[in-house]
Computed example of a mutant assay.
Amino acid sequence: MTIPLLAIAAWSGTGKTTLLEKVIPLLKAQGIRPGLIKHTHHNMDVDTPGKDSFLLRKAGADQVIVASNQRWALMCETPDKPLTLHQMAARMDSSSLDLVLVEGFKDEPVAKIVLWRTGVKGNITDLLDDYVIAVASDVEVALPVAALDINQPQQVANFIAEWCFSQKNP
């Protein structure tokens, strides 16, 4: 069985990370083991220049695992064909997760909660597609999906927990 994916989609500056920082511990308190895939538009590197792993990756290793007793990270070079969201999720350990939260990837065909705040660029309708299951906002929105209060992380976490349960027990 594949791990359920749930995207948290919004315009930059809406508070995706801030909300997830509050929601993730609330999900864990309910016994849900979440993973996370974060999208960035920036050229990023999790490795530290000058360290052995960085030097060996730059020497040509296409995949490098850096490991300690506390954590490990796999770095893969993908200059020719970046992975899709589903390929990334498939690399996560499904035996230790109940759900993969996805920050960003607003155009991907996966279930998503759209975040909307007044005063942030763009229009809410530009974020809506057939995969939106809820909108979390700081104002009331009249849409044919669940309406959540973006300022109530417990409400958002409860909705996600119920959704997660429904995916595992259809």
Rank of each mutant, 00 (worst) to 15 (best):
L148G: 06
L101G: 05
I8G: 02
N151S: 13
L26M: 14
T78Y: 09
G104T: 08
L19R: 07
F165P: 00
T84V: 07
I160F: 08
T84A: 11
G122K: 00
E162M: 04
E108L: 13
A134I: 08
D98L: 10
L97C: 10
G119V: 12
D62G: 13
D126L: 03
P34C: 07
T18V: 15
V114A: 03
G15A: 05
M92G: 00
M88N: 10
A161H: 11
T84Y: 12
E21N: 15
L20K: 08
Q155V: 07
L26W: 09
D129G: 11
D47Y: 06
R33G: 01
R71A: 14
D126V: 01
L20A: 11
G60Y: 01
A157I: 03
Q167R: 14
E108W: 03
L36F: 03
A29G: 03
Q155W: 04
V110L: 02
I32W: 00
L115C: 00
H41S: 12
P144S: 06
H39I: 08
W163E: 06
T40C: 02
L143G: 01
N169I: 08
G31I: 07
D126S: 13
W72Y: 15
V135L: 01
V100K: 00
E21M: 14
P49N: 10
S95V: 09
G104M: 01
A59M: 13
A89F: 09
N123C: 04
P170H: 14
H41K: 12
I65A: 09
A90R: 08
M1I: 12
F159C: 11
K121E: 15
T40E: 06
H42G: 04
E77H: 15
Q30F: 06
